[in-house]
């Protein structure tokens, strides 16, 4: 029996390690490639070990940009990405919190209709409504602006439903106790509901930040200026240079830089994220 268990463990680990290798190897190769010089890659002499041009590559990329298609420094792209990802995540959370609060705790006319309308928008992600949305954003002169990058992506049925489910598990007596304690609706929201939603907020923030960070189609469509494009769009432009040679070492460095912030967010908020997914604190 013990032998069997060991064998089982061994195979389980083997498979897991193989899985990790399959996922991690390309990432490793990207890191390696970002430390080589242009010639080494162009000649196909790329090995498994990092080269010595790492610092130089990253410095040039961050502050000067590539030589061809996009000349904007990646530093600017990171800022654009960060601002819009934060804007989208925070905006989505704020709006869904408030709408879920309204739907669960207030009796107003057409409440159920409002709920179902929100529900319906689940079927209308940006990709589906891209033309009308573009038209509106263009008419409002929001092209090439942070408002244009974030606002159309902020409404979120998923997050609203999530908070609605959570609020419905909060015992009614808590709201009643707060009422007797003299807390008005906004005070109850701020003093009781919000702190109780803390872990849910954190989990949702991680997911939405990554969602915002990874936006590609929408920013590609509405940004024309180099200094208003997020890094995910930037990678693509660095890679496709048409007539000139792609600077692969810089493209890879951009990819590495694009991966870092989401990774940092996940690592930084891991504890709360897991708590938010598994634990309900009531």
């Amino acid at each position: 029996m013990v032998e069997n268990r060991r064998l089982g463990d061994f195979f389980a680990h083997l498979i897991l390690i193989a899985g990790v290798a399959i996922v991690a190897f390309p990432v490793y190769m990207a890191v390696v490639a970002s430390t080589l010089d242009a010639d080494t890659i162009a000649n196909g002499q790329m090995g498994l070990l990092p080269g010595s041009h790492g610092l130089e590559n990253y410095r040039r990329l961050l502050f000067e940009g590539t030589s061809y298609t996009t000349r904007a420094p990646v530093y600017g792209m990171l800022v654009v990405s960060l601002i819009s990802a934060l804007g989208i995540a925070i905006g989505k959370i704020a709006i869904s919190l408030i709408s879920a609060y309204a739907i669960v705790y207030f009796r107003f006319p057409l409440r159920m209709i409002a709920f179902w309308l929100i529900f319906l928008t689940l079927m209308l992600p940006v990709e589906v409504r891209i033309y009308p949305t573009y038209k509106i954003v263009a008419d409002l002169h929001m092209l090439d602006s942070y408002a244009g990058l974030t606002i159309p992506l902020i409404a979120s049925a998923t997050a609203t439903l999530l908070f609605r489910q959570f609020f419905m598990t909060v015992p009614d007596e808590l709201a009643e106790a707060a009422k007797i304690d003299g807390a008005g609706p906004m005070q109850f929201f701020r003093d009781v509901l919000l702190p109780l939603s803390r872990t849910n907020l954190a989990a949702l923030f991680v997911i939405l930040f990554i969602y915002g960070w990874n936006q590609y189609l929408w920013p590609l469509l509405i940004t024309t200026r180099d200094d208003m494009q997020p890094i995910v769009v930037g990678i693509k432009k660095i890679v496709s240079t048409h007539d000139a040679l792609t600077e692969w070492q810089l493209a890879m460095a951009t990819a590495v830089l694009a991966m870092l912030p989401p990774v940092l967010v996940v690592v930084g908020m891991q504890k709360m994220f897991v708590k938010g997914l598994v634990e309900t604190e009531k």
Partner: peptide, 20 residues
């Protein structure tokens, strides 16, 4: 009159303490 202004206090079956 609002609950708060009634000069009452209530104890609930499930206590309804603020968990946080």
């Amino acid at each position: 009159i609002e609950p708060m202004a009634r000069d009452i206090a209530m104890v609930f079956q499930n206590y309804a303490l603020y968990p946080h």
